[in-house]
Design a protein around this nucleic acid. Structure first.
Length: 377
RNA sequence: CCGGGGAUGGCAGAUCGGCUAUGCAAGGGACUGUAAAUCCCUCUAGAUAGGUUCAACUCCUAUUCCCCGGA
């Protein structure tokens, strides 16, 4: 039911194919983040499909809080709820382990969350996240892990990988017990410490997973650090399994990571930034090609694409702007190949902005694949 | 004409005898497995002329303009 194949390689970059119960998708691919089973910014699954999106990512923690996995199961599962027949991944809630900070307490058996929404207390164990995800019914599931910030001490990180490994093993066992038809990934932690990344990858490889992801808090920047870690980690992962860099994804970041052998991405950035008024446009294919073909090439984001900020005023009262022929917005809008799909509608500015960024990322991944296909062996 | 009330940044709108109101608009920045249609920063004031005071957007006088009520 699940299959992963590497079709071609360009250096370490891989053109791949992932088969799931909801279809086969080409890689490297980007998962758009629909945390609460919906893309924010009034964008519907139907829109995502028109824009050529292959896969979306939802979050176990948020859906457990509401509407709850039982309700979701009654509604026919995530696919039915989202009206989306293509593949879906769910994150386990592991990221919330650190992003919710003070609201979370970790012990050996699991984590206790205090929901910021209403102060209610919830408990996740490796087993319970798998049970919840089995009910939610996505194609790809993530195990509960302990996510550490890049600033964590070596000692702290080492404890986190030991705990993560134990939990991930429990997730695998629970999944086997539940017999749910879902692909489970292992998550490599290890902070900024190369030897710990290697160790974590080795431990997970020994257990054996369908795919492997690289986790951690990456937003703390230190770009060279991240590249180094991705570089080291992908080298430790099996050739025949998908590699997923979690939560990381400015366009230039994705290109770098693909070059280092990553197949799968997700990031809130395109959608969040669109909602905050920033849209990406004018992907430079030549620059993209240079960056992929030459592993030494240093990517200049300013050459790779442009980004512009649109104002709240545009969100509130967009149409005059969007209908003008020579504005930047219209350029973004048309460069992103959206306008012909939307002509008959009257979408809000924010919705258009989100769609523009989705289209940009879809195109980015498509171009990356095209280059590996053309130049690779 | 009489009586009453006002006049504050591009707009709206508070406070106060000395210390940044605030919101929107404008300009800039941030955002990376979503506690985020969010957050941060900057620029625009005190109708006009005098006076009182160490100090006036704030008190007093006059002028101009606006609003309400009455002839």
């Amino acid at each position: 039911m699940f299959k992963f194949e590497v079709l071609k390689k360009l250096g370490r970059a891989r053109l791949s194919q992932l088969t799931t119960p909801h279809g086969t998708i080409p890689g490297p691919f980007f998962q758009f983040v629909a945390t609460q089973a919906a893309i924010r910014g009034q964008v519907m699954s139907e829109d995502m499909e028109k824009l050529g999106v292959d896969i979306m990512l939802a979050n176990t923690y948020h859906l457990h809080l509401r509407p709850g996995e039982d309700l979701m199961e009654q509604a026919g599962g995530l696919h039915s709820f989202m009206q989306w027949d293509k593949p879906i991944t769910t994150d386990s809630g592991g990221y919330q382990v650190f992003s919710l900070g003070d609201h979370v307490k970790i012990d050996d058996d699991g984590v206790t969350f205090k929901a910021p929404l209403d102060g209610s207390v919830h408990r996740f164990t490796p087993e319970s996240t798998m049970q919840v995800q089995a009910k939610l019914g996505p194609d790809i599931v993530m195990p509960l892990d302990v996510c550490t910030p890049f600033s964590a001490s070596k000692d702290e990180v080492e404890k986190a990988i030991i705990k993560t490994t134990a939990w991930v093993k429990r997730c695998k066992d629970e999944q086997a017990r539940l017999a749910s038809p879902q692909a489970l990934y292992g998550i490599v932690q290890g902070g900024v410490y190369p030897d710990l990344r290697e160790k974590a990858a080795g431990l997970l490889r020994d257990i054996g997973f369908f795919g492997y992801s690289i986790g951690g808090e990456l937003q703390e920047k230190g770009e060279k650090e991240i590249k180094k870690i991705v570089n080291i980690t992908t080298a430790q992962l099996p050739e025949d399994a998908p590699r997923y860099l979690m939560g990381y994804g400015k366009p230039e970041d994705i290109v770098e990571a693909v070059r280092l052998g990553v197949d799968q991405f997700d990031c809130v950035l395109p959608i969040r930034n669109a909602r905050h008024g920033q849209i990406f446009l004018d992907l430079n294919i030549e620059e993209l090609k240079k960056a992929l073909v030459d592993p030494e090439y240093s990517i200049d984001p300013k050459k790779l694409y442009k980004s512009i900020d649109i104002t709240k005023a545009v969100f509130a009262d967009d149409l005059s702007v969007f209908n003008t022929n020579d504005t930047d917005i219209t350029r973004a809008y048309s460069k992103a190949y959206v306008h012909h799909l939307m002509r008959a509608e009257q979408p809000s500015g924010m919705r258009l902005a989100v769609m523009a960024n989705v289209a940009f990322y879809v195109n980015l991944m498509k171009q990356i694949r095209g280059i590996i296909e053309q130049e690779g062996v």
